[in-house]
Design a binder for these strands. Sequence first.
DNA 1: ACCATGTCAATAAACTTAGTCGAGAAGGAG
DNA 2: CTCCTTCTCGACTAAGTTTATTGACATGGT
Lengths: 151, 151
Amino acid sequence: MIVSKKSKYAMRAVFSLAKRFGESPVKIADIAEEQSIPPRFLEVILSQLKQGGFVDSRRGSEGGYYMVTPPDQLSVGKILRFFDALKEPVECMGDNPKEKCDLKANCVFMPLWENLSAAISGVFDSTTFQDLILKEKEKKECGAKSLFYVI
Amino acid sequence: MIVSKKSKYAMRAVFSLAKRFGESPVKIADIAEEQSIPPRFLEVILSQLKQGGFVDSRRGSEGGYYMVTPPDQLSVGKILRFFDALKEPVECMGDNPKEKCDLKANCVFMPLWENLSAAISGVFDSTTFQDLILKEKEKKECGAKSLFYVI
DNA sequence: ACCATGTCAATAAACTTAGTCGAGAAGGAG
DNA sequence: CTCCTTCTCGACTAAGTTTATTGACATGGT
């Protein structure tokens, strides 16, 4: 898959924390349970998110993790890129390609990879976590309305 | 990467055969050399392409592989999808998801995965191997022109 | 002092990717 | 009919990546 399990966990964790932006810290164990993420794996993930400057933490009782970046200023793309999930579509692209290719500019496939790369970025960079939070609220409301009308 | 080495080998092999559509069979060894693909790996790939009905083969001397599908009727997407390289962006999507998710329709991330899936398909389904062949010809002409003007 | 929590580095199991190998089957030329 | 050439098939291996798990440690609050 393009988006690994780990990256999805990261997104869910960030989503969870983003909803509580400005509130008191949330324990790893709580996020893990809420989002069904293996707690000790989440530990690793949150630690990386902290390294990335997206979240911060406090130890001791009443400790936990909390959002640093406001949800409306954090795109999904930033998280995915940080977790290296938004890699180049092929190894021969980028400034420092793993797989070297002599063709480069003359490769007939290159425009394809470039379009792909742009299309993917387009999708992820245009959605912030604030958007997702709003979407969830909408869904809940629609769900309620739906229940009302269905009967 | 989204597109594995194997899938890229497959694309190059198909590209190579597509250029000779209607001509006599090409030996694995020749394609391998022309496209810098490990011969015995290419063997596996071509055999799968045959299974998929994209190419056919003949044994014995003067044998080899040849294109069945005309280049203008074969999109890049068809090959990538066949090689499972164009998987769903996440495991929880599709009709028969590997990773089951209770949220499904209510998942806030789902629209993201759907947009992504559509964007990727859009890129790959809109290019045929005929397009690539034409592009290569253009590039060669431009290259010649360029040489002419540069001096 | 103690307990609750985050922190860190190492490790392991499962899976995927990339590639290899040897023996065999089928077509064509002589 | 026999030999050579080429494809065919299935198993195998090596390396890398992903998905965690573990135990010992550090730190903050009461």
